[in-house]
Deep mutational scan, measured.
Amino acid sequence: MGFKLLSKLLVYLTASIMAIASPLAFSVDSSGEYPTVSEIPVGEVRLYQIADGVWSHIATQSFDGAVYPSNGLIVRDGDELLLIDTAWGAKNTAALLAEIEKQIGLPVTRAVSTHFHDDRVGGVDVLRAAGVATYASPSTRRLAEVEGNEIPTHSLEGLSSSGDAVRFGPVELFYPGAAHSTDNLIVYVPSASVLYGGCAIYELSRTSAGNVADADLAEWPTSIERIQQHYPEAQFVIPGHGLPGGLDLLKHTTNVVKAHTNRSVVE
């Protein structure tokens, strides 16, 4: 069995187990497998329904001669939608809004960016022009300005110390501490036991640490421990890039980060 097929099978099995364990909360999309990078042309966006009122959005972007996937989250909030992270750029984010209108038909009224990198804030200006209120932590807003990236308009308070959590509509926002970046936030959907790890969490097929220019490698494993301790009931975990899975993604990420750190020390 090929690795790609095995990865998709694991996603399907995880979703099936969740649907059985929580039949009222989960209505997993039966329309197909989780979209992969090879299936999404740059400039297009796919939506994948995880649970009743919960979707991931998947886009792709060219970077350094390669094409990478990027995940975000959409959560229903009454007759409105909360968006977590842009679709990595203005063109993708405009396509995301169009796809949401086509498939869901509810307005996106608020959006949260989970850290300051372009795959999370690139497209904020498109959201703002569409009347979406954009939010991020003060740290993310400051770092985005320093980096020359787009800056969300509103500040999220109460997320300055490791372990801080605040309720934001249908989700809980959690600051686990520094990891992929010093400002990275985690998003949890309690009604569906869905954990969105953003770039602080890796997919299972990833074996290298990737972009760690703004990471705190020493603190990252401790931050992941905080996530595990705060959300032990999480059933569906979405990484910032690639295929979702279960809580095993947290341990896998820790292993990859520690291996990278150990290699760096040896070198």
Results as ranks from 00 to 15, higher is better:
F63R: 07
P239G: 02
A209W: 07
V256K: 04
I104A: 00
G197R: 03
W55Y: 06
I186H: 03
A192F: 07
Y135R: 00
S205Y: 10
M1T: 06
K8G: 09
V124G: 05
Y188M: 03
N255H: 09
L6V: 14
N211Q: 12
V171D: 01
K8F: 08
G131Y: 03
A192T: 11
M18A: 14
S155H: 10
V124E: 04
Y231N: 08
Y196S: 02
P107I: 08
H115T: 00
L156Q: 02
S162M: 10
L47Q: 05
A218C: 06
M18V: 15
L81H: 02
G32P: 11
F174E: 00
S70L: 03
G169V: 04
Q61H: 09
L10E: 13
G131Q: 07
Y68L: 07
M18Q: 15
N211K: 09
H180Y: 07
N262V: 10
A209N: 15
A94Y: 13
Y175H: 07
D79Y: 09
G245N: 02
Y12L: 09
K251W: 11
A59W: 03
V166L: 12
H117F: 00
I50W: 08
Y188H: 05
S137K: 07
T134P: 01
D64F: 10
E80Y: 06
A130T: 09
S191E: 14
T114L: 00
I58K: 05
G197K: 03
I20R: 07
D119F: 00
L156N: 00
V266N: 13
G32R: 09
M18L: 12
R76K: 07
Y196G: 02
P232T: 09
F63H: 09
A200M: 12
S7P: 10
R110H: 11
E80H: 08
I227R: 03
S155V: 15
D52E: 13
R142P: 03
S161Q: 13
A129E: 14
D29M: 11
Y175V: 02
A25Y: 11
T207L: 13
L143I: 09
A51L: 06
E39A: 13
R142M: 13
P107Q: 12
T93R: 00
H115R: 01
L73V: 05
E219S: 12
I201W: 04
A25Q: 15
A209K: 09
H154Y: 12
E150D: 13
V28Y: 11
G177Q: 03
L159W: 03
L217F: 08
I20M: 12
S27H: 13
S264C: 04
A98L: 14
Y196K: 03
R206Y: 12
G78T: 08
D77Y: 06
S160C: 05
R167F: 11
P244E: 02
L5Q: 15
R206I: 15
V266P: 14
S16T: 14
I201C: 00
G240R: 04
R142S: 13
V126A: 08
P41L: 08
G240I: 07
E203D: 09
L156C: 03
P23N: 09
H180N: 04
